[in-house]
Design a protein around this nucleic acid. Structure first.
Lengths: 337, 337
DNA sequence: CTGAAAGCGCTTACAG
DNA sequence: CTGAAAGCGCTTACAG
């Protein structure tokens, strides 16, 4: 099988390569008649432009990268969906990179993307990421970059996120309203902005209601599921159980359910649980899970839309703007009385 | 910001472009000393090979495509995870395309991939796909292609799937063992092999146990969630409720739970439910969901491994082999007594 | 309106 | 061991 090239097409048509190329691009320089026969022949031979040749020549890849910590996660799958919907509409291709919450992989990936493979990058940081030089290096290379969800405040690029502090504040108030005082906060990271914001919202709500922040109720989980399980087991084995848990990550909420089930702790009677989550089955769990549901698809879509602004207007430096799309608190039985 | 090219590197080093290129590729033609200084300079200037230039020259993209119906689905996210793990290890990049169960998008995507953008393709068919010429066209272009999970038997490429017929047979027997006779089978598609296989297994188990196949208990759902809901509502509003439902797709099981909840139908007392599913929360649902859990990650990994065999050995035509990785039936309360 | 030619940044067969 | 040169398949400024 031979792939058909411009020169083959030109030979068949007894035209020059340049004429054929221009005709295919609907250039004003070419007569309508020529365009017609070129287009027809191209279709007949199923000509497809070689993306490497045109990419090299035009210094455009027509490709963006999405870098996320994991894909087996409802938030990120929905966000990828949002990104893909925009990319597909724009005729762009989407490369996906998983960091598995591993800073090293994130750094490697960023360096892979420096050489023109992509026209832009969307990234949600790993929970290990505190030093963000590898991100800045990339954005300094004139490659448009947009941070979404797991952002870092100090990087001067556009950011799309949800109202983490606010919704965490509301979630905490909701728990307080249900009579909880000893509220445990589960974090995935100290570095990444959204987890900090969520913790801030939690602490502010406590203070507002005259509850002292108890450091022993703030549990720092991480990428390692086994370690998390041990931490949660310890939390739920205390004599003085927390009244409630505010989980800043979906999978930690699932682990809480599992641990409580194992330890025969009743939700919501003994412990109430609320979580940031995009779980499709939140309403079907035993008990149904009260969630702060993030606009995952919208975040992905918006981040991609901004990225394309940066890609399409060359030399248009994306501003250090921050777009916040609110989350929704959905009360269910895991925080009921 | 200027990207550093081979020629810049060569000029800095006062060497020829060819020497520098060979040195970077650790060619036996180059002295160790030269290699050392080239490597050092390359590192210093942060030289990265331009993938479009080398891709054009070598006719290799170092990229594979994964084409799936959706990503917000546990099976596909896990499978993508598996694919990515292999691709990352091989130094390949992964393009992702979502067909959203839409045949037209699948066809468009296949034609996008014909022009050398990728070295190989992994695809799981949309539930609308019955005519598979667009798939065959691609594989006829000498682009290695592997089908996974949602396969079609007639295409002569490697296929990786699970033991759909067997596990559906076992699932049906399990339901029969629980005293069910009127068992409803929920399908997503008539065309795609796995759904046919699952239906076959279901019908064979019924026959084996002397139960007549009742066409009114076989419900053909599709991509449209709203239509599915209507179909399920109708199913569960019958005077003579089915004793059980065997769902061939995870999201149909979720819809069943939702519909039953709305109609105040008790699972498993009034209807038992079993589903092909990779839901992380299956054990936490009310009631916990009996599943046929597919080896999603393994399927992705295996499909990618076979694909790379085809990519690495040029002119090695991948065989029309079929690899079957078994699923596991996990009994939970949704099929209990 | 059409075409010849340069060049994008590499790799590699070949010469020396 | 090093380098000059061809060429991968395009696009585009320029000439006519």
């Amino acid at each position: 099988m031979t792939t058909v090239t411009l020169s083959m097409l030109a030979k068949e048509l007894k035209l020059s390569i340049s004429t054929v190329s221009k005709a295919l691009h609907d250039s004003y320089e070419i007569s309508n008649e020529t365009k017609k026969i070129v287009l027809q022949k191209a279709k007949e031979l199923n000509y497809q432009v070689n993306p490497f040749a045109s990419g090299l020549r035009k210094k455009k890849s027509k490709t963006i990268a999405v870098v996320v910590p994991e894909v087996a996660n409802n938030f990120f799958s929905l966000a990828i969906n949002g990104v893909e919907s925009i990319a597909q509409a724009k005729g762009y291709h989407v490369l996906i990179y998983l960091t598995h919450e591993d800073l090293k992989k994130e750094i490697t990936t960023m360096s892979l993307l420096q050489n023109g493979r992509v026209d832009g990058v969307l990234i949600s940081l790993s929970c290990e990421t505190s030093d963000t030089r590898h991100i800045e290096d990339l954005s300094n290379k004139d490659i448009p970059l947009v941070l979404f969800d797991r952002i870092a405040e100090n990087i001067h690029v556009p950011k799309v996120t949800t109202d983490d502090k606010n919704s965490s504040y509301s979630a905490t108030e909701h728990l307080i309203g249900q009579g909880c005082k000893r509220i445990s906060f589960l974090s995935l990271s100290d570095n990444v902005s959204i987890f900090k914001k969520r913790q801030e919202g939690y602490e502010e709500a406590l203070k507002k209601h005259g509850i002292k922040v108890d450091a022993s109720l703030i549990v720092h989980c991480g990428a390692d599921e086994r370690k998390n399980t041990i931490l949660l087991k310890r939390l739920f084995s205390r004599k003085n159980l927390p009244h409630a848990v505010l989980s800043s990550a979906e999978r930690l909420a699932i682990s809480c359910y599992e641990t409580c089930n194992n330890l025969m702790i009743k939700i919501p009677e003994q412990v109430k649980i609320i979580s940031f989550s995009n779980l499709q089955t939140a309403a079907l769990l035993r008990p149904s899970l009260t969630t702060i549901t993030q606009p995952a698809f919208e975040i992905g879509k918006t981040a991609a839309t901004i990225l394309f602004k940066g890609i399409e207007k060359k030399h248009f430096k994306l501003e250090n703007e921050k777009i916040i799309i609110p989350s929704v608190l959905i009360e269910r039985k895991s925080t009921g009385n």
